[in-house]
Design a protein around this nucleic acid. Structure first.
Lengths: 141, 141
DNA sequence: TCTTAAATTGTAATTATTCCAAAACAACAA
DNA sequence: TTGTTGTTTTGGAATAATTACAATTTAAGA
């Protein structure tokens, strides 16, 4: 049985071609796409697709922890990610590339003297990526 | 000389009543307001105010590091903050209150083996706040 | 006071997202 | 395999946040 079918079944979600398309697209294209990018990509082979379907399913899958939603501070679109294990994002302010950062932040230890109950932590990094740094060096020479 | 005038001058920005209004509003009301909330609050005493002015100025001030912009993952509006020193936000999923969290995260040390140059780190916490936790306990009794 | 570049205003346009009602479909039972 | 039912999909319209633009006004230096 297909892994995406298994994934959906384990959350008691109905198997639809739209859901499978979204999951496989996210899994095979780790580019942190927006709802619109997912929509456009899938629509190529399934022209009847509606944008509402994308939003509905994204919603359901985020709630079921199958995919993760995140956004950058200064961006107005949500982005999505198949991976749900702890990781962060680095965005380059020059090339706008988004890199996964696989570290684990000690976000709870520091929180001690606040009495709020932390359930989630979200964080991202911004700066200039390795590639763009190297380009700059070459120009200077 | 007024501290907001000084602040604007130090960034070579023109002094306008609109800018002074925005700054004093943000400084005196530490509620992380959205653009619309700032607009409505200032419009009461300056009815000629345009929303575009709010957006323009917010933009200029963020770029000049006078105020800070941030947003929560699942919200679609930007929020603003007079404080520009390192601090994070905790949002309560019950009462939606936003609390400042004055800690400093060791976000750079962990980053070592990536070659990207980090310039900024953004993070926020989500959970249930002290108040809401206490309310729940009382109900149970 | 004069000049000029920058800021403000109001309206219109755009973008992301949500709402809604009708039609289509998946899953389960008979 | 077919019928039933509740869920999903669709498309169009509505909303919310933000941006674009052109005309008017204004701050600040000469």
């Amino acid at each position: 049985m297909d892994k995406y079918v298994k994934e959906l079944k384990s959350h008691k979600l109905k198997i639809t071609s739209q859901r499978l398309d979204i999951l496989s697209f996210l899994d095979e294209n780790r580019v942190h796409p927006s709802a619109d990018e997912i929509y456009k990509a899938i629509k190529i082979n399934s022209p009847a697709l509606s944008k509402t379907t994308i939003y509905n399913n994204i919603d359901v899958m985020v709630k079921n922890n199958i995919i993760k939603a995140f956004r950058f501070m200064d961006s107005n679109e949500l982005r999505f990610d198949y991976k749900t294990t702890e990781h962060y994002h680095f965005i380059c302010r020059k090339c706008k590339n988004i890199y996964d950062v696989d570290i684990s932040l000690p976000y709870l230890e520091k929180f001690e003297h606040y009495k709020h109950k932390v359930e989630e932590f979200y964080g991202d990094y911004k700066g200039v990526c390795e590639n763009c740094l190297n380009k700059k060096k070459q120009k200077k020479k």
